[in-house]
């Protein structure tokens, strides 16, 4: 496997604010990567740094083996669909779809037309007059039809309804399967996309808190539910990610459990509930939030 993106010890400061704090990760070629985290965690900043749109304070970024900053050879292979992209005042969608192919050597016009029909996007209405969802659809269509070897989607579907989002997921999977490429997708709708992702990178307060295969991340936590005493006895001194309780009942999220441990829990009358990727991230980011507050 080869890396399309290699980031080491990357830091980005805005004045006294550290947006990205000594981050290192790599993105393997032809994977769908999820860049997840809360608003303001640093997802957009990372994408801007990877596409040379912003400048690192320190650290090293390699995209296709080179620095992306002002590097036409690297950037010519990328497509960055930004959240709430604005367009020139009088632009209509057809202006976008007429000009986009000039920038993307792999652009597939037929596919673009198919997507336009899928999303029922009016081509001849001023973009300013379009709904939020239709505006997002423009970006999604450009991102898919560009077939850029490295495509970034930054919260690509604000305002898209559930049906349109499903179309996006289906088209992305279908096209990715036929023409593998590297996709980096940032979103806060984690449950919806978690099955599409091969790898997840979770950012919180400018740091990477999870960087693993989506499958492993998903299995990396379990919630144990039962009478408080029984739960505490079972868990012992285990590290606790999250704790909830009503009356005598406790619901505690911990790391992965082995087969025998699961059997032991069942024997003790405890229930084991799965933890979705979204829950896991919420719990993990909460933890670091409190840690942060304590250290401050």
């Amino acid at each position: 496997m080869s890396a399309v993106v290699e980031v080491s010890n990357l830091t980005k400061r805005f004045g006294h604010f550290t947006a990205i704090d000594d981050v290192s990760f790599r993105v393997e070629e032809n994977t769908i990567h999820g860049l997840l985290g809360r608003n303001g965690a640093g997802k957009t900043t990372i994408m801007q740094l990877l596409t040379g749109q912003d400048f690192a304070t320190s650290g090293d970024i390699r995209v296709f083996g080179q620095s992306p900053v002002e590097n036409a050879a690297v950037l010519g292979n990328t497509c960055f669909i930004k959240e709430s992209q604005r367009y020139p005042d009088n632009f209509k969608p057809f202006h976008v779809f007429r000009s986009a192919p000039w920038f993307f050597p792999n652009w597939d016009e037929e596919y673009a037309q198919l997507l336009i029909a899928d999303f029922r996007l009016p081509l001849n209405r001023r973009i300013k007059k379009l709904s939020r969802g239709q505006l997002s659809a423009i970006g999604v269509i450009v991102g898919l039809a560009s077939r850029a070897p490295l495509t970034f989607f930054d919260e690509p579907y604000l305002g898209l309804d559930a049906v349109a989002r499903q179309i996006f997921y289906d088209r992305l999977l279908e096209d990715y399967a036929e023409r593998p490429r590297t996709v980096i997708l940032s979103t806060h709708l984690i449950d919806e996309v978690s099955n599409l992702l091969e790898h997840v990178l979770v950012i919180d307060e400018g740091r990477v808190i999870i960087d693993e295969a989506a499958e492993d991340a998903r299995g990396s936590a379990t919630t144990v539910v039962g009478p408080r005493g029984a739960v505490d006895a079972f868990l012992g001194r285990r590290e606790i990610l999250h704790r909830d309780g009503i009356g005598g009942l406790a619901s505690v999220t911990v790391g992965p459990l082995t087969g025998p441990e699961r059997a032991a829990a069942a024997a003790a009358g405890l229930e084991l509930a799965p933890v979705s990727l979204q829950q896991l991230i919420i719990r993990k980011t909460n933890v670091s939030q409190t840690e942060f507050e304590q250290s401050a």
Partner: peptide, 19 residues
Amino acid sequence: MTINLTFSFATGYGVTRRN
């Protein structure tokens, strides 16, 4: 207007500042 509104989305298309 042209520069203000096209810079963001042209760079999204992988265009360098110089180009």
